[in-house]
């Protein structure tokens, strides 16, 4: 094809060299950048670099650090320090222990027994153990511990109430209705007189003793106490050395019978040393020696004077 413009002689004017900045940069990647990009786009390699390598570094670094004994102890010490600094914060501090429901003596006992020095951290308080320790005190029936806001340890105590005085060989002690030891008699001042019981094994049947006391109320202040005999039955001891011997079973009914007899015949005001109700079929009494002598004289007199009137 013929060109539209006729060819001319080449120009003599040299074209200025184009500025270098105008040259487009070669867009082709170099062989190594191409290979590296391909490697980076390999899913397995990507996973290894992004997940495997950091985790390896972390695990290896930790292993290296803890391989050293000293650094391990340092780490543990640091951890404990941290723990203590948290435990020592005022939010967890317990300042006061308040004991409610206990008498002053018991309260002092509890404080001395627990031996806590306030203020202390609530993390150091083992409430369950403290509760079992408080409940191990003889005067305490039940204890209730709780931590309250404001650094306040509330101890709610229910004391054992002494029900009877138990005279043992070693001395008199107070026990409650279930037979638990409460205190020595000498250690307490009683508001009102308590029933007195005695004998081995009497503390095991305090309930029965209390029932007998209730039944023996008509005797008033003549009643001295109850004595457990042979760990199986009761004797009611009156002030003038008289005794009512009760059977093993049905002691309260037997006592009622004796009191009924007393109402009818005024038997306990007579010269009777013992009223024996142990055999339900046969009531027997033991007379005082003087009455016994009198009875013997009476019988002799009746034998020598057979015409005498029969007396009741």
């Amino acid at each position: 094809m013929r060109p539209l413009i006729a060819e001319r002689a080449p120009r003599r004017v040299a074209a200025p060299p184009p500025p270098i900045a105008d040259h487009p940069r070669d867009p082709a990647p170099s062989i190594w950048s191409y290979r590296i990009e391909r490697l980076w786009l390999t899913p397995a390699f990507r996973r290894v670099v992004r997940l495997g390598l950091p985790s390896f570094v972390v695990v290896f670094g930790l292993g290296l650090y803890f391989a050293n004994d000293q650094s391990r102890t340092e780490f543990v010490a640091h951890l404990q320090e941290l723990r203590q600094s948290i435990e020592g914060r005022p939010e967890f501090r317990v300042n006061v222990m308040a004991i409610s429901g206990a008498s002053e003596a018991v309260e002092n006992d509890i404080r001395a027994y627990l031996g806590l020095s306030f203020p202390m951290s609530s993390f150091d308080l083992d409430l369950t153990a403290m509760r079992s320790r408080i409940e191990a005190l003889p005067a305490v029936a039940q204890a209730d511990l709780r931590l309250q806001a404001g650094g306040y340890l509330a101890v709610n105590v229910r004391e054992r109430v002494p029900a009877v005085v138990w005279q043992t060989r070693e001395g008199a002690v107070l026990i409650d209705a279930e037979g638990h030891f409460v205190a020595d008699l000498a250690a307490r001042t009683l508001d009102s007189p308590l029933p007195l019981i005695g004998g081995d094994g009497a503390d095991l049947v305090v309930g029965e003793a209390l029932a007998l006391y209730a039944a023996a109320a008509p005797l008033g202040d003549r009643l001295l106490g109850l004595v457990r005999i042979g760990e199986r039955r009761w004797d009611v001891v009156l002030k003038d050395e008289r005794r009512i011997l009760l059977p093993e079973a049905g002691a309260v009914q037997a006592l009622d019978r004796a009191l009924g007899l007393h109402d009818a015949t005024d038997i306990l005001n007579r010269d009777v040393l013992r009223l024996d109700l142990r055999d339900a079929d046969r009531l027997s009494v033991t007379l005082t020696p003087a009455a016994m002598e009198e009875l013997r004289q009476e019988r002799i007199r009746a034998r020598t004077n057979p015409t005498g009137e029969q007396s009741g």
């Binding site: 867009p27 082709a28 990647p29 062989i31 191409y34 990009e37 391909r38 786009l41």
Partner: peptide, 9 residues
Amino acid sequence: RTAVQAAQK
């Protein structure tokens, strides 16, 4: 290389 790399990217 240019084309393949860009498409891969």
